[in-house]
Every structure is written in C-alpha cells, then in structure tokens.
C-alpha cells in the first residue's frame, strides 16, 4: 500500500480495481478495433457476401469480438480486480441483458405473428 499523503506518488501501484494498461495494450487494442470495425463496414458497403443472413451473422460475430477486445485492452478487465467482483457484476449484467433482449424479441415476434391480420386502412371496415 503506497503512502497516500504524497500527492505526487509516482509509484502509485495500489489496486483501485481498474487495471493499468501499457502502451502496448492500447496500441494492440486500437489496431484490432480498427481491423474489426473496417471489415464489417467493408462487407456491408460493397455487398461482398451475397446472402444477407450470412452477412448479418458475420458482422454480429465481429461486433462481439470487438467488444471483448475493448473489454480486455481498453477497460483492462481481468478476473482478479476487486477480488473478482467486477467480473461477477459483468456476468450478472450479461445474463440480465441476454434475458431481456432475447425475451423481448421472442415475445414481440410471437405477438406480431399470432395477431389477427388487420387491413391497413381501418376506414374500409364496415
């Protein structure tokens, strides 16, 4: 534990929970992000893959990989910070997000497909 009374403590290495990145981390993270951003934009702007569903799955995969890259190289996530409580909070959040997103889309999709077909112009009804 370093001495907090020194305002310019340069060797300030007590763990505040957030890891400290190095220049190497930031540069690797940045280069990976540029690549992982450029490829999906290129895929969509040039229609490189004819099948739209395949393109959608590929760019979603790129997004997930890029989020993980950001978590590791920019947010300096690791399983040790704050005795693992940051990772626990993250896992809990991911579970809630997955339930909320998939649940909303699933329920609303079924609601839409099971609705009685309705004419667009209500004025034409008798």
């Amino acid at each position: 534990m370093s001495d907090h009374s020194n305002p310019h403590a340069e060797d300030h290495h007590d763990d505040h929970g957030a890891g400290h990145g190095t220049m190497r981390d930031y540069v690797i993270g940045f280069l990976l992000s540029v690549i992982l951003t450029a490829i999906p934009f290129w895929l969509v702007m040039t229609d490189a893959i004819a099948d739209k569903a395949t393109t959608a799955i590929v760019i979603m995969a790129f997004a997930i990989v890029q989020i993980v890259v950001h978590m590791i190289y920019f947010l300096h996530m690791n399983t040790k910070s704050n005795n693992g409580w940051t990772v626990m909070a993250l896992i809990f959040t991911i579970i809630i997000v997955v339930i909320a997103l998939s649940g909303s889309l699933w329920v609303m999709h079924h609601l839409n497909t099971n609705m009685m077909p309705m004419p667009h112009d209500m004025g034409q009804l008798p």
């Binding site: 505040h16 929970g17 957030a18 910070s81 704050n82 409580w85 940051t86 909070a89």
Partner: peptide
C-alpha cells in the same frame, strides 16, 4: 476511495 472503482463499475 478504495471501493470507488467497483462502485463506478
């Protein structure tokens, strides 16, 4: 401030 980063997270 020991718990600030966890709280902010």
């Amino acid at each position: 401030g020991a718990s600030t980063m966890l709280g902010f997270w």
